[in-house]
Amino acid sequence: MTGQKLLSTVGFYALVVVIVVFSVFPFYYAIVTSFTTGTDLFKINYLPRSFDWGNYATVLGGRNFVRSILNSIFIATTTVAFALFLAVTASYALARVRFRGRGILLMTILAVSMFPQIAVLAGLFELVRFLGIFNTPWAMILSYTIFTLPFTVWVLTTFMRDLPVEIEEAAIVDGATPWIIITKVFLPLLWPALVTTGLLAFIGAWNEFLFALTFTSSETTRTVPVAIGLLSGATQQEIPWGPIMAASVIVTVPLIFLVLIFQRKIVAGLTAGGVKG
C-alpha cells in the first residue's frame, strides 16, 4: 500500500517536472542562444557556454528596432486607454441597467470579439486609406479597437455585475446621477479590474501581427512583432538567429515580469473573458 502510494507520488512529481520543462525550455533556449555569437551558434549548447552581449548590441544598435519598440508601446497604450474609456461607461450600462435588448447586445459584442480579423481586413484597408492613416500608428490604433473594445467591455461587465447592489442604492437615494455613480462610486472599486483588463488588452495589442503587417509599409512604422517577423540577414539564406533571439528576449522579458507580478489577477481576468459557463 505504501509502496503504491510512493509510486503515485513519484509519478505525480514526474508529471509536474515534465510540464514545467516543456513550458520553460523554449524560452530558456532562446536566452541561451541570445548570448551566443559567431560560430558558437552552430554548435548545439544545452547549457550556456558564452556570455556575449553582442547580439543585443546588434539589435538595439541598428535596423530601427528601438523605434519599433516605441511604436508598439505608443500603439498598445493608446489603444488600451481608448478601449477602457469607452468600456467603463458602456459596461456600467450593460451590467447595472435593465433594458430591452441587453442580452442581444451582449451577444453581439461577444460575437465581434470572435470575429475572424481577416474578414474585416479589406474593409479596414479601404477605411485606413480613406482616412489617410496608412503607415502611421493610427491605423493600428483604429484597427486594434476591434478586439480590445469587445474584450474590455465584456470583462468589465462581468466584474461590475458582481458588485453589491447596496452601494448603488445608497447613492441613488442620495440623488446621484448615473454619471456620478460611475465616477464616484464604481470607479474606485473598479481599479483592480481596470488594471487586469488593461493589461490583458495591452498584451493583445502588443502581440498583434496581421493588421500591423498589412497597414505598415516602412521599417520605421513597424511594430515589434512585425519587426521580429521580418528580421532577416544580408542574404536570404543567412538568418540572423542570434539577433532574432536577442530581440525576442528583449520584448518578452517585460511581458513575463508583468504576467508573473499580476498572476492572480490575470487568471481571474482570463476566466471572466473566457466566460464561466
Binding site: 524560452f27 533556449y29 501581427f209 512583432p225 533571439m245 511581458l255 508583468l258 498572476q263
Partner: peptide, 18 residues
C-alpha cells in the same frame, strides 16, 4: 502555475521564431 503562464505571455511571432 507561473511556469505555464510563460508560453501564454510570449508573443506568437516570438514563439514562432523561437
Amino acid at each position: 502555475r507561473a511556469a505555464i503562464l510563460i508560453p501564454w505571455a510570449i508573443p506568437t511571432i516570438v514563439s514562432a521564431k523561437m
